[in-house]
Design a protein around this nucleic acid. Structure first.
Length: 470
DNA sequence: TGGGGTTAT
DNA sequence: ATAACCC
């Protein structure tokens, strides 16, 4: 059963060649309502979809353990319920709710620990890869959201369309603001075809991965993202341009605009700007002086629903990191143990990825009553002889890397003085495809992993543990 | 507030 | 190295 998923997309795909205009151009709306042919590429209007999985971590947990289905479920990290399924939401549990409060609100709440992100990360990339099959231009936003630029795909489908099929064209899912659809308007047509593709994407996600989610289709990322959240869960919505202003004006505060975060919202508040209309009508010059030209111009355009930022293909990750938060870490030995644990997991991940990190970073958070958000970091290059050992089996790569990390640690923390940390994080970044050693060069033949070593599958890096018996 | 990510300065 | 943004 799939509540909320709309009827399958009208079949558009496999028609004979030709299309309405013989493939030489596109039909475009004219004032009088008729269709005319315009040259390729004359329209700059894009079709973007934002795909947003429903309570992603909870869905992954319910797939792992189907007995959880139907019960109110929360995913716990430390003392927080970071997300929960809709059964739990009906009973008053909210995202990022304290475990105490959640249990009080909902005593039957089932909690699973979600501090290890491995399965979520893996499922997340399966979703992105599935979407990339539709069109390669997919941008990830967190683990549970993706943007896809459908412009080209829509164009291709329109070229396959017979002119008599145009009059019968239907979209899929909801139309925002219940707006009237004008089939003589090429922009409407393109967005409707986008909504059909969005429906196919959600269908594929469900059939192949067992995941449900929402989608929003619009002419840019901002609007696609805003409109995807209108009907939830497991539904989709298309925004036609005439309703853009209704959508953005429906936001009750500028902080709800993606791109305006906590800091900027505070600064806007200080200028007396709280509504979207306030931001639209505020003096651009003064805004530029207060926020800098870059932020000012960008967010003021956002307030009009304008967003020309491209969908940037995410590709493989730029960095791998693991972190752990805790009440208190106040000794070097304690820190070293935690750092070793973080690093061991990271080395397994980076080993499976195949690329090699050239930079390592250590991040800490110090205890403090105020400003609890701030972190400090130190980074350094990974020595080339260590890089080469990465992924090459039995060599102990832990020891040199832990040594580096502890040097970074002592650079940040004066271990001769009392300290109190609440978070440690290790990040491997500056990932490079291989060795950069080119074939035929001296380096190539001097690089053991390139010509001689056979690549075996996964190996795991064990933490050395003196208490462990063989 | 967790355990991640990204880009800009 | 930090600060801002996103989830």
């Amino acid at each position: 059963m799939r509540p909320g998923l709309r009827s399958p997309a009208a079949s558009l795909g496999v028609n004979e060649k030709g299309g309405a205009d013989g493939g030489q151009g596109r039909t475009e709306a004219r004032g009088g309502g008729g269709l005319r042919v315009v040259p390729e590429g004359s329209s700059s209007s894009r079709v973007i979809v934002h795909v947003d999985l429903d309570c992603f971590y909870a869905q992954v947990e319910m797939i792992s353990n189907p007995e959880l289905k139907g019960k109110p479920l929360g995913v716990q990290q430390k003392y927080l319920v970071v997300t929960c399924n809709y059964e739990a939401r009906k009973l008053g549990v909210k995202k990022l709710m304290n475990v105490r409060d959640a249990k009080e609100k909902c005593p039957q709440l089932v909690l699973v620990n979600g501090e290890d992100l491995t399965r979520y990360r893996e499922m997340s990339y399966k979703v992105t890869e599935l979407l990339e099959e539709f069109s390669p231009v997919v941008e990830r936003l967190g683990f549970d959201e993706n943007f896809v630029d459908l412009t080209e795909m829509v164009e291709k489908r329109l070229q396959q369309l017979q002119s008599d099929e145009l009059s019968a064209l239907t979209g899929s899912g909801h139309v925002y603001n219940n707006q009237y659809i004008n089939l003589h308007d090429i922009v409407h047509i393109r967005l409707l075809v986008g909504s059909q593709i969005a429906a196919e994407m959600r269908e594929a996600m469900y059939n192949q991965l067992g995941l449900t989610g929402c989608a929003g289709v619009a002419s840019n990322k901002l609007l696609a993202k805003l409109v995807s959240g209108i009907f939830k869960p497991n539904q989709q919505t298309v925004l036609l341009p005439e309703s853009s202003q209704v959508l953005i004006q429906s936001l009750s505060h500028v902080k709800e605009m993606p791109g305006i975060g906590y800091k900027t919202a505070k600064r806007l508040e200080a200028l007396g700007i709280s509504s979207v209309l306030d931001l639209q009508t505020f003096s651009p010059k003064i805004l530029e002086k207060e926020l800098g030209i870059s932020v000012a111009q960008r967010i003021q355009k956002l307030s009009f629903g304008e967003d020309n930022s491209p969908v940037t293909p995410s590709g493989p990750p730029q960095s791998f990191s693991e972190e752990d938060s805790f009440k208190k870490c106040s000794s070097e030995v304690e820190a070293k143990n935690k750092i070793e644990e973080l690093l061991a997991s990271l080395l397994n991940r980076v080993c499976q990825d195949g690329r090699k990190p050239h930079t390592i970073r250590l991040i800490i958070r110090r205890y403090s009553s105020e400003n609890h958000c701030s972190r400090e970091s130190r980074q350094c290059p990974i020595p080339s002889h260590v890089i080469q050992k990465l992924g090459t089996g039995n060599c102990d790569v832990m020891t040199p890397m832990v040594d580096i990390l502890m040097k970074l640690f002592r650079n940040m923390v004066n271990v001769k003085m009392p300290f109190h940390l609440t978070l440690l994080s290790v990040c491997l970044c500056n990932l490079k495809a291989l060795n950069t050693a080119k074939k035929g060069t001296i380096d190539y033949y001097l690089t053991p992993s390139l010509s001689t070593t056979s690549r075996s599958g996964k190996r795991s890096f064990k933490m050395k543990d003196s208490h462990m018996e063989d």
